[in-house]
């Protein structure tokens, strides 16, 4: 138990399998809640996935007047409770990563819930279970620590997560070393 989503950003090949898989998660209603973005579209084909990072102190929930965004015991920041969401869209404005989506017709916000129907039983979320390039991984704390240790350089160049995020998150990220002028040895 207690595994977490881990992103190795430079592995992304832009296949968008994670987006397609997201649509198939129970309750996602055939709509994906994650993103794959071009890094430098006029120069190369590098892409990176972006999804809710499940902040430990989530800005979306803090700015919600209705307390509609609940935090699951696993740490996942859930999508808005349908009966509470009043459609003010504060969450879409406050999220530092621009993740929540809003459905005007249904007057309802929806966002990545880390496939809570799966992850609560330690089954990887849809996106991680289909990722063909190991960009999205579902790892234990020890595995993540090992990964991070392996990537730490003495010159401090290969840094993980925090300085590049706004606050502590439940989803862990490995910054792309290649893009920082480091070569990764597979």
């Amino acid at each position: 138990m207690g595994r977490k989503l881990f992103l190795e950003l430079e592995n992304c090949i832009g296949c968008r399998s994670c987006l397609a898989a997201c649509t198939q998660c129970g309750g996602h209603d055939q709509r994906n809640r994650n993103y794959v973005l071009d890094v430098n579209p006029f120069v190369n084909r590098q892409t990176m996935p972006l999804m809710c990072l499940h902040c430990v102190n989530p800005a979306c929930a803090r700015s919600c007047p209705a307390q509609a965004i609940q935090i699951h015991e696993t740490g996942a920041v859930l999508s808005a409770l349908v009966e509470k969401c009043i459609g003010c869209q504060n969450c879409t404005i406050s999220c530092p990563y621009g993740i929540p989506k809003f459905d005007v017709e249904q007057n309802l916000m929806y966002k990545c819930d880390l496939c809570i129907d799966r992850t609560k039983d330690d089954i990887p979320p849809m996106c991680a279970s289909v990722c063909p390039s190991n960009t999205l991984q579902w790892l234990t704390e020890e595995e993540i620590a090992e990964k991070q240790q392996q990537h730490e350089m003495e010159n401090g160049k290969w840094v993980t997560s925090m300085p590049y995020l706004e606050s502590e998150t439940n989803v862990k990220i490995n910054l792309p070393g290649i893009l920082q002028g480091k070569e990764k040895l597979f």
Binding site: L37, V39, N40, M48, T92, G98, I99
Partner: peptide
């Protein structure tokens, strides 16, 4: 929101996406 997502990518990659 789209610019916020791209801004985050720029923080990850160092390229002003």
């Amino acid at each position: 929101p789209p610019c916020r997502r791209k801004y985050r990518i720029s923080r990850f990659s160092g390229i002003p996406t």
